[in-house]
Design a protein around this nucleic acid. Structure first.
Length: 95
DNA sequence: CCCCTGACACTTA
DNA sequence: ATAAGTGCCAGGG
């Protein structure tokens, strides 16, 4: 029934993102680097965007510029969640 | 197999 | 600081 069509790459991304501790945020580049290639930043975002798994704290993944990036649930929601976690966000910027 | 899209990062102007 | 261009990779049609 559940046909988990998770490609290895996606699984890797989720594994790393799931490891992100509360109140902490990693950049797509950091996650990509953990996967073995910092250039995978794009692919990382792609995986999260196509897989809005609530089991994955995708809201803890931000851009390298300090911006939040995006969130399939609503970027606004992402910011609120992060702030609740303890992350300081000013003007939509990760502090 | 080819083409396009995308929640990025970096460099140059 | 902002804008535009380039490079990288994976997924979907």
């Amino acid at each position: 029934m559940l046909k988990i069509k998770m490609t290895d790459f996606k699984k890797q991304v989720f594994a790393v993102v799931k490891k992100i501790p509360k109140g902490k945020v990693l950049t797509y580049g950091q996650v990509a680097q953990k996967l073995g290639n910092k250039n995978l930043a794009r692919a990382v975002g792609n995986a999260l965007n196509k897989n809005h798994n609530k089991s994955v704290p995708c809201h803890r993944v931000v851009r390298g510029d300090g911006r939040v990036g995006g969130f399939n649930r609503g970027i606004k929601n992402k910011i609120v969640i992060l702030k609740k976690e303890g992350v300081k966000i000013i003007n939509g910027k990760i502090y």
